[in-house]
Structures are given as structure tokens and as C-alpha cells.
Design a protein around this nucleic acid. Structure first.
Length: 759
DNA sequence: CACCCTCGAGTTCA
DNA sequence: CTCGAGGGTG
């Protein structure tokens, strides 16, 4: 997939987006303000859709004043209009250091001398204009369209950092101070917690929260609601970054302006820096690109201004933005996209999980089309409707997460998600496992295709028997009838009875990339329709071979000219790997049985203690619960599992096929001989890629040395072995002051024990 | 009753 | 890798 794009493509897209934006605004203006239609509705819609598409492909191009983010003509408002004394311009954007350098080079050429730049953080908030007359705050207004904004004076008085009277003396009769109102990240979290508690909708991001809070109306509110509104306003903060409407200010540079604003008691940002070259400005941009998280408010970029005010006049402005300043925008961590549908999938445990299907969109470096919504309560809590424009981000830069809807962009066609009452795959009525459970499950564990498929896939997974070839697609292929004469596996019971001949009729496995749905097709059937729907051919169990080749059975195959089909390496490998898996350690066999609550850790404990499946089955609840790491619940889960007849069938058929259900040489039930080795009593967490170890290998090595291999870092962790690519666990370890080892030190630890690192 | 841990699921990348 | 849910332990 060509998911990356060059600076040139971005540049071209930016140009097109600007043209489209101008056109849309022109059409809107004509339509809403002058009651004249310059183009058909279809033309307008097409223009709009093209812009939306561009913004999806190039999230960098999105901005809050894009026509895709506003409705109708002027922003509809409950607030009185206020005309700014001096027009509030917006800033032009650049999206790469290259573009920034280009801009700076031009500025320096036009200035004809060296230029100092003032660099500051671009706050993701709401632009506000404060008008002070003789030092007294008279109005506060949003930017609006730059000429006329909304009067939010009453609400702004609750923002503590904004003085109603300027400090000092000698204030001009009229001055406008420009700045950004925002909500700090921490306060944003609190606010959303309160909104949830009060049953109100949560805000998708800090900017929406700031905007929403500032635009509340006091009228008609109960005392309770009024107090809540004031609390919300009190969370807002403001930082000022400029002056408008002041004929002859007594300062010569932007940085001196900031000093003056600070003297007047106005809040200025602590983060700005004056630099002497565009190279240093670029360094500032790079620095905060990496340290975005360390700032108390959200930043979506950097603003670079020419420091000297005289140059501002010389350089002037276009009709929408000054030439002496530019905004460098970081690639967004959040983007908007359309929620096309909410679909429910059923996992191997029968749990029904709704997930969002979205218009594919690029976010934090990859294209996302799906994101889990966990369960129906989460769907409700997020307040998303099918058809909504939603805010999407990557949690921890990896996992796609839907934050919430952009309510302003609703057009009334959205519909609520209704959790299905029946399993989407087998139709059985869904129900909670026990009273009070939020999760709904499909009770048809035995024959629900989704669950059978999931369990078969699980058998092959790394944590279980680690069978190569047996992945998601193969599991689907094996559990669905492709050719009517050959029944599918039905359950995992028949897995180890498979032969190459059984696999053979399964010709092609395709996955529909649009829906993610796995479909199976007989290649000899209708190959053309496959190509038409652009499916991907994966895991074919056969390949073409010349008729002259001795390695085929003419009875079992079909001919196509002088070629015939023979089993592929996938087919033979799968059978060979299944064969190998039959002698896996007992704990892996246990994991592969999909017993509730029995994962690798619990399985190891039980397998070590009892040594055979027979011994486990014969054990009483108390005996099971006596095993370290096993309690009543897991003991019950084991006993319940053995009591099901078709589970018994799995064991019988696997055993008949040669699966080993006992650890050779195990003395029988009893506390395992106290583990031996240099790491007894030591807990180690391995993270990142440790040279010379696989992920599994590192865990095995820890256990083999008698240590405990934990999966997350906590106070109890003694060592963290971290290689390149270690993520949050490394940070956690540093925070807790836990000794961190590299691959070589890890080897030493395994060989010599913790004393090698005694402090 | 905290707190820590494991389980299970979804997701995307090379 | 991360989250929520829920089990186990001190």
C-alpha cells in the first residue's frame, strides 16, 4: 500500500484545497448572504466532497475554519455580533521544514537584512480578541470570520487569568489584545469525568471543550446548571500573543510587546523563544515536535513570527494572513472521519463486540478503517451515531480509538446503533453470561462459526501451540464448508485428524478488504467475480503443476488444459506443523483448549503441578485451588470445562490422533519441586527486542533460570530487560527506579543471578 | 479492600 | 501495545 506521500503531493493537495475552500466560501456567501445561487447543488456538493476527501488523505490540511468543519454560512450564533476594531487575520500554514525554510528565505529576501524570529507554541484552542478601553476590559469576542465575532464578554469574566483591569498606568485609550483560550490537558480530563458523571456528553478534544464551555448561555439555567457552567469556565485559561488596533505602540519588537503585555498583568506563554536564524527556528520546531506531551496544553504546531515590528509593516499582509508570520503544523494525532457503520463481531469466547467501520483515514502514520467500541455501553458513552463525523486518534500511537462525534456536523440522517439481540454469525440469542454483566455473549459455543473459527485460530496462536500456517485465514478456511461434499472441521476436535487430501479442495481464501469479512471461494468456480471485487488471494492449499509431473493423483484433481493442481507447501506445511504440535508441552495444550481464565500463566502453574491432563481432570476443586496462582474461579472453570461432552470429544479425538496430554517423567500431582536456578524469587520483565532472544525465548529463559517472567512492570518487578523498541514499560521502570538491563546484562543475569547486579 | 496481575480482545506494522 | 474486566493475593 502506498500510504506515504511526498512533499510535492502534499503541496499540490494544499494548493487544490485552498482553491476549493475559496470556491466553497464564495458559493456559500452568495447563497446565504445574497440569496443568489452561483452553482447547482450538485456542483456545490461535489466541491465539498472533494475537499473532504483531500482532508482525509492529508490530515495536515484540516483546520477548524475549513468549510468542512462549519455549517451553513456564518457560524450560527446565539451571541451578539461584535465588530473587531482591527481585522483578526489567520495564519498561513506550512507542513514541513522544507516549506518553512522556503517561507523564511522569502521573508529574509524581502526584508533585505537578517531577521530575528520569535517562536512560540501554537495552542489548540479558541482565538479571542480582548478589547481594553483605558485599561478596562470592555468586550471579549471570538474570531468569527475575522471581521465580526461573537460577544462572549460575560463568560470570559470567569476565566481567572484574564484581568478585567490592566495593571500599571499609561494604557492607550483603545487596545485589542489577541490570544487563545484553551483548557489544559489535565483540566480537560477532569471536565470529561464530570460530564460523564452528570450524564452529559463528553468533549472530543480540548479545543471543543474550550469552545463549548465559552459558548454556554446563562439564560434559563437552573442554579445547579449555572454553577456547573461557572465551574467549567473556571477551568479555562488564556495566553495572549499579540496586539491589534494600537496606532503607535511604544515597543519595537514582538518580544517587547510580550514583555509589555506581561507588565499589564496579561498572561503570556512561558514557552516562547527569540532566535537569530531560520535554522534555530527549525530546531525549535523539531524540539517541540518530540516534546509535545511535556506541555500542559495541547499544541498543534509552532508559530514563527518576525520579531521586529517595523518589518511587519514592510512585509504587510495578504487579505487573509500576515506575511510576517507562519504556522508550522505538526501532523495531527487526531483526525475526523465518517463513521459508516457499527458492526458486531463475535470472538472465540462468544463475546459480541461492536466496532466502528470508518471511511479510511490516515492518522499518526497509517491508514485506519476500524476501531473497537468495546461494548454497547461504550457506544452510548461516546455518544456516536452511525453516519456521524467522528474524532479518531491512535491511543499510545498504536491502537485506533474513536473519541466521539462532531455534533455540529450532524445533518439529521444519523441513526443510533442498536445492539443486535442475536449473534450475527449463527443467529442464537445473545445474553450476558451472568447477572449484571455488560458483555453479551453468544451461548452457542459448540457450533457458532465465529467461535469455532476463533478457537481453531487460537490453537495455532503463539501463546498456545504456535502452529505456523494456522492463522486467521486458515482457521476460517478449515471451519467453513467450501465444497459441499467436504464438511468443514465443525469444531477443533478434528484438527489433528486432517490430511493433505482434506485440505486439497479448499482452493482459495479471500479476504474482503472493505468489510474485513473472510470469504471462501472455489477458484474453479467463478474466478472472474473474485478479481472484480479486488479480493486478496491468501493461503491457497494448492498450486498448478504440469500434467507430466508425477506428483499428483489424477483421481483427486481437476484438469485445466495440460496443467493440474497439486497441494501447495501451505498444505503440506500445515500438516507437518500439526504433527509437530502434538508433542507440545502440556501447558501449551491446556492453553489451546480455550478454557476460561486459563492462559499461559495459569496453564503453566496447573501443568507443572499435575503433570497430566488426567490428573487435572481427577483433581477436586480444592486440590486445583491449592495450586499457586489458581483460585476458586479458575478451579471451577476447569471442572466446568471437563463436564461438557463435546469438550471430552476434543480430548478423545486429539489423543487418538497422537496428541500428548502428559509431561513425560512427571512424578504426578504434588507441589512441583521448588524451581531451581539463579533467578529463584526474582521477577523479570522483558520488553523490546533483545538481541539474541525472541520474545518467547526471553520468557522461557527467565522461567528456565527459575525466575518469574511478568508481563507488566510493577513495584514487585526486580529487573527490566529492555532492548530497542521498548515502549511504555521502560518509562514505567524508570519511574519506579527499577534496574534496567540490556541484552548482554540480561544474559549475565540469567547465568549468575541478581547478585551480579547487587547495589 | 486495595493493589497488582492476568486474561481477552482489537489493531496495525514489518 | 493498550484497554477494561475481573481474578488473586497480602
Amino acid at each position: 500500500m502506498a500510504e506515504t506521500y511526498s512533499a510535492d503531493e502534499l503541496e499540490a493537495a494544499k494548493g487544490e484545497a485552498q482553491t476549493l475552500t475559496a470556491r466553497i466560501l464564495e458559493l456559500r456567501d452568495a447563497y446565504y448572504e445574497r440569496d443568489a445561487s452561483l452553482a447547482s447543488d450538485e456542483k456545490y456538493d461535489a466541491t465539498m466532497h472533494r475537499l473532504e476527501e483531500l482532508e482525509r488523505l492529508f490530515p495536515e490540511l484540516q483546520s477548524q475554519d475549513s468549510p468542512t468543519q462549519t455549517v451553513g454560512g456564518r457560524v450560527q450564533s446565539l451571541f451578539d455580533p461584535v465588530e473587531h476594531a482591527e481585522r483578526m487575520l489567520s495564519l498561513d500554514n506550512v507542513f514541513s521544514l522544507e516549506q518553512f525554510t522556503e517561507w523564511a528565505t522569502k521573508v529574509e529576501r524581502d526584508s533585505g537584512r537578517s531577521v530575528d524570529y520569535l517562536c512560540e507554541l501554537k495552542i489548540d484552542g479558541l482565538a479571542i480578541n480582548l478589547r481594553y478601553e483605558n485599561g478596562v476590559l470592555t468586550t471579549a469576542a471570538t474570531r468569527g470570520d475575522g471581521v465580526v465575532g461573537e460577544d462572549v464578554t460575560e463568560n470570559i469574566r470567569f476565566v481567572k487569568s484574564i484581568p478585567t483591569k490592566l495593571a500599571g498606568t499609561g494604557h492607550p485609550p483603545l487596545v485589542e489584545v489577541r490570544g487563545e483560550v484553551f483548557i489544559p490537558v489535565e483540566a480537560f480530563r477532569e471536565l470529561n469525568a464530570e460530564q460523564t458523571a452528570a450524564g452529559d456528553r463528553i468533549f472530543a478534544n480540548p479545543r471543543n471543550a474550550a469552545s463549548g464551555s465559552l459558548r454556554q448561555k446563562a439564560e434559563g439555567k437552573s442554579a445547579d446548571k449555572l454553577a456547573q457552567m461557572h465551574r467549567r469556565l473556571a477551568k479555562l485559561e488564556m495566553l495572549v500573543h499579540g496586539i491589534g488596533a494600537w496606532a503607535n505602540p511604544p515597543v519595537k519588537s514582538q518580544s517587547e510587546t510580550y514583555a509589555l503585555l506581561a507588565e499589564w498583568g496579561l498572561p503570556t506563554s512561558p514557552y516562547f523563544k527569540v532566535v537569530e536564524s531560520k535554522q534555530e527556528a527549525a530546531e525549535f520546531i523539531e524540539y517541540y515536535g518530540e516534546h509535545r506531551g511535556s506541555v500542559s496544553h495541547e499544541i498543534d504546531g509552532i508559530v514563527i513570527k518576525v520579531d521586529e515590528l517595523e518589518l511587519h509593516d514592510e512585509l504587510g499582509a495578504t487579505n487573509r494572513a500576515p506575511r510576517w508570520a507562519i504556522a508550522y503544523k505538526y501532523p495531527p494525532e487526531q483526525v475526523n472521519t465518517k463513521l459508516l457503520d457499527i458492526v458486531v463481531s463475535v470472538g472465540r469466547t462468544g463475546r459480541a463486540t461492536p466496532f466502528a467501520v470508518m471511511e479510511p483515514v490516515r492518522v499518526a502514520g497509517s491508514v485506519v478503517r476500524q476501531a473497537t467500541l468495546h461494548n454497547q455501553d461504550v457506544v452510548k458513552a461516546k455518544g456516536v451515531l452511525i453516519g456521524d463525523t467522528v474524532v479518531l486518534r491512535k491511543a499510545g500511537d498504536v491502537i485506533p480509538e474513536v473519541l466521539g462525534p462532531v455534533i455540529e456536523l450532524r445533518d439529521g440522517t444519523e441513526r443510533e446503533f442498536v445492539m443486535p439481540t442475536n449473534c450475527p454469525e449463527c443467529g442464537t440469542e445473545l445474553r450476558p453470561m451472568k447477572e449484571g454483566d455488560i458483555d453479551l455473549r453468544c451461548p452457542n459455543a459448540r457450533s457458532c462459526p465465529a467461535q469455532v473459527r476463533g478457537r481453531v485460530e487460537h490453537v495455532g496462536s503463539r501463546g498456545a501451540l504456535d502452529i505456523e500456517v494456522l492463522g486467521e485465514v486458515t482457521a476460517a478456511a478449515l471451519t467453513q464448508p467450501v465444497v459441499p461434499e467436504i464438511p468443514p472441521l465443525v469444531t477443533e476436535a478434528g484438527l489433528f485428524e486432517l490430511t493433505v487430501e482434506d485440505l486439497f479442495p479448499i482452493r482459495v481464501v479471500v479476504r474482503d478488504n472493505e468489510t474485513g469479512e473472510v470469504k471462501l471461494t472455489d477458484a474453479a468456480g467463478d474466478g472472474s467475480s473474485l478479481e472484480a471485487s479486488v479480493p486478496k488471494e491468501v493461503t491457497p492449499f494448492q498450486r498448478l503443476r504440469k500434467k507430466t509431473d508425477p506428483a499428483f493423483d489424477p483421481e483427486a484433481t481437476e484438469f485445466a488444459g495440460d496443467e493440474t493442481r497439486v497441494p501447495s507447501s501451505n498444505a503440506t506445511n500445515l500438516i507437518a506443523n500439526l504433527e509437530k504440535a502434538k508433542t507440545s508441552p502440556l501447558w501449551r495444550i491446556l492453553v489451546s483448549l480455550s478454557i476460561r481464565h486459563v492462559g499461559p500463566v495459569a496453564a503453566r502453574a496447573v501443568a507443572n503441578y499435575f503433570g497430566s491432563l488426567d490428573a487435572i481432570r481427577a483433581a477436586s476443586r480444592d486440590e486445583l485451588a491449592a495450586v499457586d496462582g489458581v483460585g476458586g474461579i479458575i478451579a471451577d472453570a476447569l471442572i466446568d470445562w471437563f463436564a461438557v461432552d463435546w469438550h471430552q470429544e476434543i480430548i478423545d479425538r486429539w489423543a487418538a490422533a497422537g496428541v500428548q496430554f502428559a509431561t513425560p517423567g512427571h512424578p504426578g500431582p504434588g507441589a512441583a519441586a521448588g524451581a531451581d536456578g539463579p533467578l529463584v524469587g526474582v521477577t523479570v520483565v522483558a520488553t523490546g527486542s533483545l538481541e539474541g532472544f525472541t520474545r518467547e525465548g526471553a520468557l522461557e529463559a527467565i522461567i528456565a533460570a527459575g525466575g518469574k517472567a511478568a508481563s507488566s512492570v510493577s513495584k514487585k518487578t526486580d529487573f527490566v530487560a529492555a532492548g530497542p523498541g521498548a515502549g511504555s514499560k521502560l518509562g514505567k521502570a524508570e519511574e519506579l527506579g527499577i534496574r534496567i538491563l540490556d541484552a548482554d546484562q540480561f544474559r549475565t543475569l540469567l547465568a549468575e543471578g541478581p547478585s551480579a547486579f547487587a547495589e
